[in-house]
């Protein structure tokens, strides 16, 4: 019983981690809380769904479609709602407020286009269920866990080992200096938006498949949770986002199993406050990183 509940929690947590990694990337590079990320995630789910409905394909075309579609959306958001505002050099909160606006627009557009009804992927894509003794896991849950882990490692390698990743880190460190050193920071910022959004889009497809619940409002709760995970993981730390996601998933599931479902979010967020009280820099963040960002 307890073991199955922990498995349930880890599986739920890996979907949270998928979303949190996108947030973390944007924050890590731009120090921007991208509040439309939840909506990008939602659009990704819808793109995946329509790719499946129109082409009759499976999970792979849906994922590819969502990756490409949301990468494009990310670029669009950067060009329309981020770059012009940053260029004017207003208050540092202005870009964040602008992303809230983008989120609302995306939600309304999705409601107009797709309706507010909950929809799911066709049932032929239903995952295979594996039973290992008393434990039940589905192929999809394993896929989500695998994708989340793979993304985490790939991103880590990309950021730490490649030239582009190095440029990204330089941009994160100091925008002006990076530009003086000949790095095209404008392009790096655009790239960051594209990658983070693509990750969000892929997460949308996987969550849509797993929970059978795609709606224009699916990004709201998931967005808040992704944001919170980024905080407990240590702002801008990709491993932290992964572990933070798992932690939140397990805490939620256990609170539902042993308390009541109405405590689900209250308990999870109380734990989060406790973690932040004990470790203000988050699980993986370093103290200097926090200071340098304040």
């Amino acid at each position: 019983m307890l073991l199955q509940q922990v498995v349930n929690g880890v599986m739920l947590g890996s979907t949270y981690a998928l979303i949190a990694i996108g947030y973390t990337l944007v924050f890590g590079v731009l120090h921007l809380v991208h509040l439309a990320h939840g909506e990008v995630f939602m659009i990704g789910a819808f793109i995946g769904l329509y790719v499946v409905l129109w082409t009759g394909g499976g999970v792979v075309p849906a994922l590819v479609g969502a990756l490409l579609g949301t990468a494009l959306l990310g670029v669009l958001i950067e060009l329309v709602a981020f770059r012009p505002i940053r260029a004017r050099g207003g208050h540092f909160l202005a870009p964040m407020i602008s992303t809230i606006g983008v989120g609302i627009v995306l939600q309304e557009v999705a409601t107009r286009l797709f309706g507010s009804e909950l929809v799911g992927f066709p049932h032929r894509l239903e995952p295979v269920t594996f039973r290992l003794g008393p434990l039940t896991v589905t192929s999809l849950q394993l896929l989500i866990l695998g994708v989340a882990l793979a993304l985490m490692i790939a991103l880590h390698v990309f950021v730490a080992r490649t030239r582009l990743g190095m440029a990204m880190r330089a941009t994160a460190e100091n925008l002006l200096t990076a530009r003086l050193l000949g790095i095209n920071t404008t392009r790096i910022i655009l790239l960051t938006f594209a990658i983070a959004s693509a990750l969000g889009g892929a997460a949308g497809v996987l969550v849509g498949l797993s929970f059978n619940a795609i709606s224009p409002f699916m990004g709201i709760d998931m967005g808040v949770k992704g944001l919170a995970i980024m905080l407990i993981g240590g702002l801008g730390n990709i491993h932290g986002a992964m572990l933070g996601g798992m932690a939140l998933g397990v805490i939620e599931v256990l609170s539902v199993a042993y308390l009541a479902s109405s405590y689900r979010d209250a308990f999870a967020f109380a734990m989060m406050i406790a973690i932040l009280l004990l470790r203000p820099q988050g699980l993986f963040g370093s103290a200097e990183a926090v200071e340098s960002r304040v």
Binding site: M1, Q4, Q5, N8, G9, M11, L12, V207, F211, A213, M218, D221, E252, V253, L254, V256, A257, S261, S262, R264
Partner: peptide, 12 residues
């Protein structure tokens, strides 16, 4: 709860 998407804990 209305709006929940994950019911694994309850069903277990």
């Amino acid at each position: 709860q209305t709006g929940d998407i994950d019911f694994s804990a309850q069903v277990t």
